[in-house]
């Protein structure tokens, strides 16, 4: 198991290194100059050059990249070109909001998806099934930039239940979590339905029924528990996506998360902030993936021994 863990961590490090190098070169390849964005055209050539030197942008790209990795080893993410603030401070400010929203959205998704998926599976080809899957289809089809304002209109403006936007208490989390969680619930409920249907046709389910167990016990205890593994994998991956920030939802609800910071930094060509955000996002993905691999290996010994068990 230790050997397996070491291999996975090593490959995660390689992936992270590759991502960082790729993003570094890509963001520099995109047209647009951060010095232009800050100084405007009226600045003299000498002032532009002075600013380029002050920001370290006059160095060759490879030197900048090398310096970036040297700083990373000292946990120094640099400072923002625009606000001149330490990036670690900016990320730490945003991270709680992102985590809060990601976890809340996941809770909403699970709360909707599991009952829907189970009902659709045990009432296969009935109105219940069609209703649940139609809801799922609608959930997947409605874009967040539309759903967000509609929820605000109904629940904030008409009913006055929640604040329109901002991060101000538990009430302000509800609408963004529903907006983000609904789309995820749609995917998840389909997954729950299909895996549960597969499991319900297994021999051990027939045995459980033959033993005279109640239907709820058969479905929830023997069926759902065995159907969970792929669902948990999907949930883990989605958590990675959510930790990367949900730009549209964050924008609609003025939620101060990582996604919004990333997009703002890309638009301003704030290279160090983009790098740091991508580092954090890839770290979240890699962490979730490694955890998923470990859980799989723990559950299924064939994986950690390369199929020799």
């Amino acid at each position: 198991m230790l050997n397996f863990l070491f291999t996975r961590l090593l490959s995660a490090l390689i992936v992270m290194f590759g991502v960082m190098c790729m993003v570094f070169f890509l963001i520099h390849l995109v047209p647009g100059d951060p010095v232009d964005m800050m100084l405007g055209e009226s600045a003299r050539l000498a002032d532009r050059e002075a600013m380029r030197v002050a920001l370290g942008l006059d160095q060759p790209l490879l030197v900048q990249l090398q310096q970036y990795f040297v700083n990373l080893t000292q946990f120094d993410l640099g400072t923002s070109l625009h606000s001149r603030r330490p990036i670690s401070e900016m990320l730490l400010e945003r991270l709680p909001a992102t985590l809060e929203l990601a976890i809340a959205a996941l809770v909403v998704a699970v709360a909707i998806a599991f009952p829907l998926g189970v009902i659709a599976a045990i009432r296969k080809d009935t109105l219940w099934d069609r209703g649940a899957m139609s809801f799922s289809l609608i959930g997947m089809s409605i874009p967040n930039f539309w759903m967000g304002p509609v929820l605000i209109l109904v629940f904030s403006l008409w009913l006055g239940w929640f604040p329109v936007s901002g991060r101000d208490g538990i009430g302000s989390l509800v609408l963004p979590a529903i907006t983000l969680g609904t789309a995820l619930a749609a995917v998840l409920s389909r997954m729950v339905r299909s895996t549960l249907l597969e499991v319900l046709n297994e021999d051990y389910i027939r045995t459980a029924r033959a033993k005279g167990l109640s239907e709820s016990s058969v479905v929830l205890k023997h069926g759902l528990r065995n159907a969970l593994l792929p669902v948990i994998t999907l949930l883990g991956l989605q958590l990675g996506v959510l930790l990367g920030g949900a730009v549209i939802t964050e924008t609609v609800f003025s939620w101060p998360g990582i996604g919004k910071l990333t997009i703002e930094a890309i638009l301003k060509r704030d290279y160090p902030v983009v790098q740091a955000c991508v580092l954090l996002i890839s770290l979240a993905y890699v962490f979730v993936n490694v955890m998923t691999d470990l859980v799989y290996a723990w559950v299924d010994p064939r994986i950690r021994t390369g199929g020799k068990a």
Binding site: P149, I152, L153, V164, S165, G166
Partner: peptide
């Protein structure tokens, strides 16, 4: 001073008194 990036939401916040 509250930043509300989305124009529609900014209007809704005004109407709601936020």
């Amino acid at each position: 001073f509250i930043h509300v990036g989305d124009a529609t939401v900014r209007v809704l916040k005004l109407l709601r008194g936020e």
